[in-house]
Amino acid sequence: MIKVLPRNILRFIVLILLQVWVLNNIQFSGFVNPYLYVLFILLLPFETPGWLVLVLSFFLGLSVDMFTDTIGMHASASVFMGFLRSFVLQSIAPRDGYETGTYPRVFYYGFTWFLKYSLLLVFLHHLFLFSIEVFNFKTFYFVLLRTVVSTIFSSILILLSQYLIFRK
């Protein structure tokens, strides 16, 4: 339990620097951009209290916002995602519930469970993000296209991270 705190702080910093320095410079066909930093919210322990998830999501998004000059956009999208996390976790819980001492990763709950978990939350996050960026409903199909394509790229990176870094 004591180890959890420094590990999460380190993950927070590494993910933001990775997002700002590397991933924001990857722009497939001009507008598609993977957002890996949401992995931080996905990997928070099951026992994290709800209010803490919200607060952490807010500061995570705000940190990314500071570097991209989009104050509030990533923050609001992340908070939205953090809010939905507990409901998604409830709805796809295994029959016996989540065991203590385990984390939301492929290693503990399998590929299918993690794919459902990450794809759903990443899609909702991206949809919120791109909608609030455009701020109108005229270009809905364009927003949807960006959301779907970016979700695919982000999810591939998130799944890869499960097999390359968070193997245990």
């Binding site: 000059d69 989009t70 104050i71």
Partner: peptide
């Protein structure tokens, strides 16, 4: 949980709108 979510979300959206109105807090860009 729900109240806190609404509060933070409203705060973020206000930030976005202010930003669109060119009143960004100068220390955050």
């Amino acid at each position: 949980y729900f109240i806190l979510f609404i509060l933070i979300e409203c705060f973020s959206v206000i930030l976005v709108i202010q930003y669109n109105n060119y009143h960004r807090a100068s220390f955050l860009n």
